[in-house]
């Protein structure tokens, strides 16, 4: 609620004219803040972590936190009506927590239980909730209004944040941040190479990524703006046929941390 109020207040001073980013002035300031924090603290620590530890150890850490995350990934799949996927996630949790030694080894992927990527923001999107404007949240990065609401729930139920033993909890939270960031280090360079304006590059990648995730990787191509296509084959047919499978919220793209978007960008090519 407060967020919407802030959005309204700041709307007046925004200049971009981009309907998906109505509070661009505020967002750019937050983006600069997050980047500054990253440059000063998070990235140097993650770089050190990346250089010091061996790959198997780093993979073990990633898997350990990934295993914990599978619990709510499964719950979100069930909330979205994807029952088989949800039970697949619980199967992963059971297999990896036991045979995989507390999740350190991802045995489940080897036996064909695929890792998924779900959160409450995606669930809301699946339910037809519109994405709302793009928002850069301090510390967390790119979101939309809907995904910010999802984030609040994600954090509220996060098993790591809710661990009762405070020193263990804090150590685990810090380790998870560092590990996640270290995984994204290669992406940084590619984004720096690609982006004309890093802010909008990251924003648009986030919005595309969330849209794709809501469709579980099968998003229809967005309609092409009418351009002079005389010398090209028309794209219209494809956009039209895709339309059928598009749920009502085609316009209301949503889903994932910038981090993930960056990761994908980076490892892509």
């Amino acid at each position: 609620m407060a967020l919407i109020l802030v959005a309204g207040l700041l709307g007046g001073c925004a200049t971009s004219g981009n309907p998906k980013d109505s509070i661009e002035g505020f967002n750019r300031a937050m983006f600069a803040f997050n980047e500054g924090l990253d440059k000063a603290i998070v990235k140097p620590v993650a770089t050190g972590y990346d250089n010091v530890l061996s790959s198997p150890v780093k993979t073990g850490v990633t898997n350990f936190f990934g295993n914990i995350a599978d619990l709510f990934i499964g719950i979100n799949n069930l909330l979205q009506g994807k029952v088989a996927a949800g039970f697949g996630d619980f199967g992963r949790l059971a297999v990896n927590s036991t045979i995989g030694i507390l999740g350190v080894i991802d045995v489940a992927s080897d036996i064909g239980l695929e890792k998924h990527e779900e959160d409450f923001g995606q669930t809301f999107g699946r339910w037809g909730v519109g994405s709302g404007s793009y928002v850069v949240v301090p510390f967390f990065g790119s979101r939309t209004v809907r995904d910010t609401a999802g984030l609040v729930l994600d954090v509220a139920v996060d098993p790591v944040s809710n661990h009762g033993h405070v020193p263990t909890r804090n150590t685990a939270l810090a380790l998870r941040i560092v590990s996640d960031r270290a995984n994204l280090l290669p992406a940084d360079k590619v984004i720096d190479e690609a982006a004309l304006d890093k802010y909008s590059y990251v924003r648009d990648a986030y919005l595309q990524r969330r849209r794709s995730l809501i469709y579980d990787g099968n998003a229809p191509r967005e309609a092409e703006p009418e351009a002079d296509l005389a010398d090209q084959q028309p794209l219209v047919a494809e956009a039209g046929s895709a339309q059928e499978s598009v749920p009502a919220q085609a316009e209301t793209v949503a889903v994932e941390p910038v981090v993930v978007a960056q990761q994908h960008l980076l490892q892509t090519e």
Partner: peptide, 22 residues
């Protein structure tokens, strides 16, 4: 076009191109 994790490397430039042109 190439899409990585659902992100089109080509259309991702559309907004920033449009704002440069504005």
């Amino acid at each position: 076009d190439i899409e990585v994790g659902g992100i089109s490397l080509v259309t991702n430039y559309r907004e920033s191109f449009a704002s440069e042109i504005r």
